[in-house]
Design a protein around this nucleic acid. Structure first.
Lengths: 347, 347
DNA sequence: ATTTAGCACTCGAGTGTTTTAAGTGCTAAA
DNA sequence: TTTAGCACTTAAAACACTCGAGTGCTAAAT
């Protein structure tokens, strides 16, 4: 299923013009703007054939053509030229990604940066199969204890529990042992359950202190589950969203965990996955494209960063931005990981 | 400037009907729906007078009336009946506000809850005149140190700094002393500057470790400045925002720190402040109303919680919700504060 | 002095019709 | 194989018209 050179040029021009203008592209525009050395009639004949072959669509008979899902797919796979990021974007990314904070902070920073650079909503999902490796509890004062959770993948989270009663060091050590015994190896997604079990079992022995510690951990973990996406309002810039009803549906959709999960599910096996329009299994996503990138540190998968936009999104820029971020991010987290592992061994 | 009973009833009915329906209210609707024992002609005469006195406005000659800013103001000050929150809302609030996390977490929870209950954007602003009281640095492992910042108002923040090099306990103690010397009494808003000064001055002595600690603090503090508002998308439910352009302007406005600051500035002296439409100094806010509440713990002001919506917002429900939250919040933070102070004294 | 019925008037919103312009597909010639 | 030319289609813009909600005023009724 290969196209001749002229058709390739036409298809790629239609895609690129439509991405830029959001208006159906006509034969005349194509000849004038993209310097095709043929008359508009020739282009028209080719466009008709491209439509018959399923690469283009016509909103109505007297309009120009827009790319079909198949058209976008052919463009992305065969025609699209990778483009270098602009210096402005590179600078912005480098200046904004500080690398401070814990994994979730960094994920959030990345999502913010991506949504700014690409003017598109960005979704992050954490890898919940990561497991607890070690828990430390440090007393800061009589009524404040710090809890540090380290995961197998080398990420660190911490929280402070405020206690109503003072607690002896010995008791605290005992609690720390119990937490480590019970939680080591627990996947993050099951942490909530495991914590509840501890409380149920040990409440009589440790009274409220253990409960306060456990609740602090529970809250800290639930915080990350909540914040999923950045820059949702960027979608308003697209003419596709000039209708408030569409906007509401989109926001609703992107806030529904199940839909996002299903969307990202299909990209399981690929580092960089591009799902265009009706290729999405989820019907509600059929007008959108989802581009996602696995974020990992070494061989350890930490999560996924996804950009969701109208089918008419800028594939070239999105992909090169994600790739750039990927390198950047790998480096940043790679460093952190190394440090954390050292810290881990040292106790 | 008092109105007779019938006019009061008319004004209050117009306001309430308009808040509910977003449509200009006509004399006939008023008679039928609000059981005014007069003919529509009588109501019409009164409405005309209310318009002449500035309480009502007429979008065009053959439409009903809508309240003017003065009309809303009179309603809020004299006619509005406080209403009890529904059990559903009370339950939702009580179940959602966990009270865990640091001040910023709690502020964010409150903003989320309020925006859910009221279906309106909610803005939080922290009181930056709070000052640093004490800093603790705890070594967790060779490469991880925990930094705990306690403020005068009794709030706690913490962050973890990952170090590239190991650091001796003695050196760390020295650094802690320096941090305390230099930062105690520093208002949070000047913290950034003060931290930069430390680095500039002491970098040669402590090499990168101090810088890593300082940068972690800087990042942790900047995180709170960023997240300002919750539930912005709720605004889409209002028919006032059926035009995407209006939505964009609103989002833009609410994301502009200066505008929000100026809006909240005028409520400086009041615990609960209500600013309606053109009462706002900021011209861009003239179509909106801002209701804000001081959040304090004892006599210490922690920040402000504000609801921003169209002039046609539900004043009664908003105010009673904020009042309810205020009690709730005071209690929650009151508790924390007590704990923190104890912890503080104990060292 | 108030209140109300009645009526002429205004204007936005909705509906149907016409015009315009962009773009096509096809035919016949190059 | 390409292209000029032309008839055809259609969405969107422009316009004209109707309808109805709601008004303000006047004159009569209470």
């Amino acid at each position: 299923m290969s196209l001749d050179e002229r058709k390739k040029k036409i298809l790629s021009s239609v895609v690129e013009d439509y991405i830029e203008s959001a208006e159906p592209v006509g034969s005349k525009t194509l000849v004038e703007k993209y310097h095709l050395d043929y008359s508009s009639a020739t282009i028209r004949n080719d466009m008709k054939e491209l439509e018959e072959e399923g690469y283009l669509e016509q909103p109505h008979v007297s309009a120009g053509r827009i790319p079909s899902t198949k058209g976008y797919r052919y463009y992305v796979d065969n025609l699209m030229k990778e483009r270098k990021l602009s210096m402005v974007d590179i600078d912005y990314i480098n200046n904004t990604l500080s690398g401070y904070g814990d994994v979730d902070d960094i994920f959030e920073q990345v999502a913010d940066v991506v949504s700014k650079v690409l003017s598109t909503p960005t979704v992050i999902t954490r890898n919940n199969s990561d497991t607890i490796e070690n828990i430390k509890v440090v007393k800061i004062s009589d009524n404040l204890v710090l809890i540090v959770l380290m995961s197998k993948n080398g990420t660190v989270k911490d929280c402070i529990a405020k206690l109503t009663d003072t607690v002896e060091d010995k008791v605290l050590d005992k609690m720390t042992d119990i937490l480590n015994q019970d939680l080591t190896g627990t996947p993050l997604q099951e942490l909530h359950l495991a914590l509840n079990n501890i409380i149920k079992r040990d409440l009589e022995n440790f009274s409220v202190v253990m409960e306060e510690i456990v609740n602090s951990i529970k809250y800290e973990m639930s915080k990350n589950m909540k914040k999923l996406n950045s820059g949702v309002e960027k979608i308003l810039e697209n003419p596709e969203f000039s209708d408030v009803e569409t906007v509401k549906n989109f926001i609703n959709m992107i806030s529904t965990k199940e839909i996002i999960d299903s969307a990202l599910d299909s990209s399981k096996d690929n580092k960089l996955s591009i799902v265009i329009g009706s290729e999405n299994k989820e019907v509600l996503l059929n007008d959108y494209s989802v581009i996602s990138l696995d974020i990992s540190s070494g061989d350890k998968k930490l999560g996924k960063l996804s950009v969701i936009g109208p089918k008419r999104m800028n594939y070239a820029k999105t992909i090169s931005t994600l790739k750039y971020i990927n390198d950047k991010f790998n480096n940043a987290l790679g460093l952190n990981k190394e440090k954390v592992e050292k810290g881990d061994n040292s106790e």
